[in-house]
Design a protein around this nucleic acid. Structure first.
Lengths: 322, 322
DNA sequence: TTGTATGCGTTATCAT
DNA sequence: ATGATAACGCATACAA
């Protein structure tokens, strides 16, 4: 509504003086400063951020790109928004539904200067496509990738998965069945490596139980329980790709009258909210801290400063399913 | 980087012709249009949205204000973002942690034209404070309030709660204990009314069991189970304020070796994701649709058009806890 | 159909 | 210490 020129007229000074008085940059006499501030107050002045963005080329807005706002994505979003707001940035959402064309829209928003930088929580586009937009602003990824221009705040799940396996071993389980996620993900490969090394260490047969790929939903967990019943009930423990699969197993086992951990143990991964409600043993994945690091990387690039990253560690949360 | 003036020079036309060619508004010959488009493509032209916002006074950005991004808030956010993006709007997040000063920051963002409108998912500020910002743009609320300038997309929970009570009655429960949320919320009052009318209809004594106020977390649910054990085990069913409290009850009952629904029944409210995993009977609350309506109200005000709102209905989701 | 000129609100540069 | 002026990138009223 009311702009700097208006305030200048009312206060009997020039627009530049008003600008200086309000921003605190540059010289301005105490008397005029007081007058300007009073007039600005009186006429309900508020700076127009679009003009500022145009002038400076900086929006202090960051884009967050995710397929949907469920569970761990929400957790990441919360952590990222908190870090951003603490430092005077604002976060704009881009929800893709795993649709590549929507991902491009987010990239275009960066190109058109709607945001200063982007964080991709999860994506499907070719890495090279995303990388071609880094010339418009910093881009970081949560999803584990390796690219010279796109830092990723991933954690190597080798360590976390090893914690799960060691825990199961310590509890006496020897016939462990692995339920993996997407085989194309680097994290899946890390888990496979962890299991191989674990078996070698304790001289277990890695092929004693079959493994399963591409699991991720509660329904997959339910499926696994039925598989267990119908195929000799061999495994005495399941190490799962995430808490959702584990939750599906727990729910289905209960419906079928099976007892956990007596019939078989289940270990989740992530430690989402509902893991507590289901009393699920799981591996805590510090999503909040990863989000904070994602922001720090972005900020350090935008403001050209060095910022420390918080070290990240998995840990076991033991509950009643093991 | 490259702007309209630059393209104009390269294409041998005036900036306004470029503007017209790119926007499709106004007359421009086919030949020049082709030339301009080719040059724009070649020089990687992208319009600067900040300049556009400054010029037009419209950002096509909406602010969403919420305390944190957990559970039903995430659900609402997802629905709102989807609706917004489908219509060419973008959503910026303001996370308040229930801190009033953070809510003011969101209001200020509206005043400073960083966003065109705001939706308050939940808030603590005085309604009059929020209302004083409606002169800067539309503001709508999910939280149930009544104010002439701030539409709310609430649903009257009288209906939903009645569905829960009728279901419990039909399943044979007669000693129903109400676990309410914050007593200052209008929705709590609606539920109290629903229970009163329900008791009258079936000639039940409304005071047969005590009611509880201000519950909301799983820990409150755990507390309720212990209360039940220590105080004569009177109620045969609990109608809870939300799924989180219900989940706490289910988890604690399991730990204590109680059987649900034999020892007592539990009915949740909301039908969040984990309700399915816990096999919780609950009342489905169409959050997505409410978010869509919130967006429609905002859009109708911004674009000054009439938009229909989707009718909303609760329904029962019967699972194994009743 | 096209081009010129102006303004959106702000800040930075440069005189004064 | 202060003010005039230009510039950020775009759209549009108006003239041609």
């Amino acid at each position: 509504m009311t702009n700097i020129k208006e305030i200048a007229k009312r206060a009997g000074v020039s627009p530049s003086t008003v600008s200086r008085a309000l921003s605190g940059k540059g010289y301005v006499s105490e008397e005029k400063k007081r007058r300007v501030l009073a007039v600005a107050e009186e006429f309900d002045y508020a700076p127009n951020l679009n003009a500022l963005s145009l002038k400076t080329g900086i929006t202090r807005r960051l884009g967050l790109v995710a397929p949907a706002f469920i569970e761990s994505v929400s957790l990441f979003t919360g952590g990222f928004v908190r870090a951003a707001e603490e430092n005077g940035y604002t976060v704009t959402l881009f929800m893709t539904g795993s649709d590549v064309s929507k991902e491009v829209e987010a990239l275009e928003a960066l190109r058109r200067k709607q945001v200063d930088a982007l964080v991709f929580v999860m994506f499907k586009s070719d890495l090279s496509l995303i990388a071609s937009y880094t010339k418009y602003g910093p881009i970081v990824s949560w999803q584990r990738i390796i690219h010279p221009n796109i830092p990723s705040v991933f954690m190597n799940q080798y360590d976390g998965y090893t914690i799960a396996l060691e825990h199961l071993y310590a509890r006496g389980y020897r016939r462990i069945c692995n339920i993996y996620g997407s085989p194309t993900r680097l994290n899946t490969q890390s888990r496979i490596d962890a299991f191989r090394d674990f078996c070698a260490k304790y001289e277990l047969d890695p092929l004693a139980c079959p493994s399963f790929d591409d699991m991720g939903n509660p329904s997959h967990g339910e499926q696994m329980v039925r598989w267990w019943l119908e195929n000799g009930q061999i495994p005495d423990a399941f190490a799962t790709t995430n808490d959702r699969v584990a939750a599906g197993m727990v729910a289905e086992a209960r419906r079928l009258g099976l007892r956990i951990p007596e019939d078989f143990a289940v270990c989740g991964f992530d430690n989402l909210d509902f893991a507590d409600m289901l009393d699920l043993t799981t591996i805590h994945y510090p999503v909040n801290e990863q989000a904070g690091n994602a922001f720090s990387i972005i900020r350090s690039r935008i403001e050209e400063i060095e910022l420390p990253l918080r070290p990240l560690k998995f840990h076991l949360v033991q509950r009643s399913t093991t």
